[in-house]
Design a protein around this nucleic acid. Structure first.
Lengths: 139, 139
DNA sequence: ACACAAAACGCAACAACGTTGCAAATTAAT
DNA sequence: ATTAATTTGCAACGTTGTTGCGTTTTGTGT
């Protein structure tokens, strides 16, 4: 049915398997970001724990998803936009973590502002995490 | 000898014990941030693993240190400046993680720029992580 | 459609990280 | 100095993440 999912996998040089299809669909169906744990709960024992780890690893390497560091020591993952692939991310947006519902979302429209580092420091990557209360919880 | 350490503990309503004194001195003697693991290595079995966890927890709650989220899922801690205590941090500086030597430092002079969130989102805390090559490694 | 090579999967075992309960030791207060 | 409150170490446990290996599935070439 969902041809789109399979094509997305193939486009990223990933062989199509039941696990990958399912996990990718979790991301597509989901507004925010997912942690390893979220996926396991959604899959409900359908796949081995190791498979989920390896799938996320593969998605990361191919640039299908990007990781979001969080203060509570649980890495989350979110789908990348079309134009970032092969590990090269255009991942310059702010991530928002809601302290009420716990969801993590990409604020695609909020760009991380440029900063000036002290002499001698070379910048390679920047992450910006904002926590607070999200739109839905604030409703 | 080191009266200063003891006073700093007392000032933060923490009873003075060998473990706390030692761990606090690690932070005072150290330029950058420390992870739980760093501290255990430095202590070299002198204290129980659990004690280190609980000490860090206590320091955090009293506002003696603040935590720094990292992309590799290992939380680090750094001393707070004098004027933040009781859990209320003036923690508005950028954190830098060196990809070469692995050290994490607070760039006290680099302030996190203000950002504008979409309507409905309320900001409570902001973390900014820059990774790259630090001054000493770039030397 | 079939056979074969390559990749992915599940399982088991293991290592690292983090938490909790409780008895013994240490600290602070009277 | 005695006592109450905190802190510590130990043991046990749960979670998270990794590795190796035999089996299954996928992709490819004929």
């Amino acid at each position: 049915m969902n041809k789109k999912t399979d094509e997305l996998l193939k486009k990223n040089q990933l062989s199509v398997t039941a696990g990958r299809r399912q996990i990718l669909e979790f991301f597509l169906r989901q507004e925010g970001a997912l942690s390893h744990n979220d996926i396991e709960k959604k899959a409900d024992g359908k796949f081995d724990r190791v498979t989920v780890y390896r799938t996320l690893q593969a998605f990361l390497e191919k640039g299908l998803i990007h990781s979001i560091p969080t203060a509570d020591n649980s890495i989350r993952y979110a789908l990348c936009k079309d134009d970032c692939s092969g590990g090269h991310h255009h991942d310059d947006h702010v991530h928002f973590i809601c302290n009420t519902c716990g969801s993590t979302v990409c604020l695609e429209d909020v760009t991380i502002p440029a900063i000036k580092l002290p002499g001698g420091f070379v910048k390679q990557q920047v992450d910006m995490l904002v926590s607070g209360i999200c739109k839905s919880c604030n409703g």
